[in-house]
Computed example of a mutant assay.
Amino acid sequence: MGDFTHFNEQGRARMVDISDKQETVRTAVAQTSLFVTKEIYENIQQGTMAKGDVLSVAQVAGIMAAKNTSQWIPMCHPLALSGVDIRFDWDVNADTYQLKIEASVKTKGNTGVEMEALTSASATALTIYDMCKAVDKGMIIGETFLVEKTGGKNGDFKR
C-alpha cells in the first residue's frame, strides 16, 4: 500500500503507531463562527436566553469535546491534554451578528492536537446553536479551520 500510514498491509484502516515519535509540547488553535439574529445576539449579551448562560455552557462543551475527540474521530489517539481554552469575539456590522469562536488546545505528547482544537470549536458552535434554536433555527455555522499548530516532526503551521 505504499507509504499510507493509516492502512495496514492488507489495505485496511488502522490507528498509526506513535510510540517512536518524539514527545514534545504541541499546540493547536482552531476557529469557527456562528451567524445569529439580532434577537439572539441581544439575548446572549444580556444573559436572557431561556436555556441559560449560552457562552458558559458552550465553553464547557468545547472543553469536553476536546477531551473526548478520540471517541468521535476513529483514528485519533486518546490524549492527556494539558490545557483547553475557548474564546469568543463578536463581530457586529449593520444587520450582521457574527460570533467568532477560537479553541486553543495544548499537550505534551507524541501526536498533535489539531483534531482536538477543531472538534472543540465545532462542539462549541453546535452547543450555541442548540441553546438558541428555539429563537431562530436559521443560524449559520461558518467556516471551521485550523489557525495554527506547533510541535511535532512536521513543524509549525500558521494560516
Rank of each mutant, 00 (worst) to 15 (best):
G83V: 01
K137A: 10
M131C: 03
I101F: 03
L79N: 02
L34D: 08
E42L: 13
M131Q: 11
W72A: 09
G52D: 07
L81E: 02
P78F: 02
T96R: 15
G2T: 13
L34C: 10
F145T: 07
D17C: 11
C76G: 05
D91E: 14
E148N: 13
I86H: 06
M1Y: 13
M49L: 10
D136P: 11
N93D: 14
V135E: 12
V92Q: 08
D91P: 00
Q31R: 15
D20S: 14
D53K: 09
K133C: 08
A121D: 01
W90G: 06
Q59V: 00
I18Q: 04
F157Y: 15
L81N: 04
A125E: 06
T27W: 05
A80K: 14
N43M: 14
R26L: 03
Q31M: 14
F7L: 15
V36Q: 03
F4H: 13
I44E: 09
G62H: 10
S70T: 03
G155L: 04
F4D: 10
V29L: 09
S70R: 04
M64L: 14
L79C: 08
I140T: 12
L55T: 08
K100Q: 14
A94R: 11
V60H: 08
A13L: 12
R26M: 06
M49H: 05
V54F: 03
Y97F: 15
M1K: 12
V57F: 03
D20N: 13
K67P: 07
E9S: 15
I140Q: 14
F35Y: 08
S104H: 14
W72I: 14
E39C: 03
E143S: 12
I40E: 02
A66F: 10
D156C: 02
I86F: 09
T111G: 04
A65L: 10
T119F: 03
I101M: 02
T96M: 11
Q71P: 01
V92A: 06
T32K: 00
E114T: 06
M15N: 02
A125F: 09
G83E: 14
Q45F: 00
K51A: 09
C132K: 08
I40M: 06
L126A: 11
Q22F: 00
V54H: 01
K21P: 02
M139P: 00
I18A: 06
N68T: 12
R26N: 06
A30L: 03
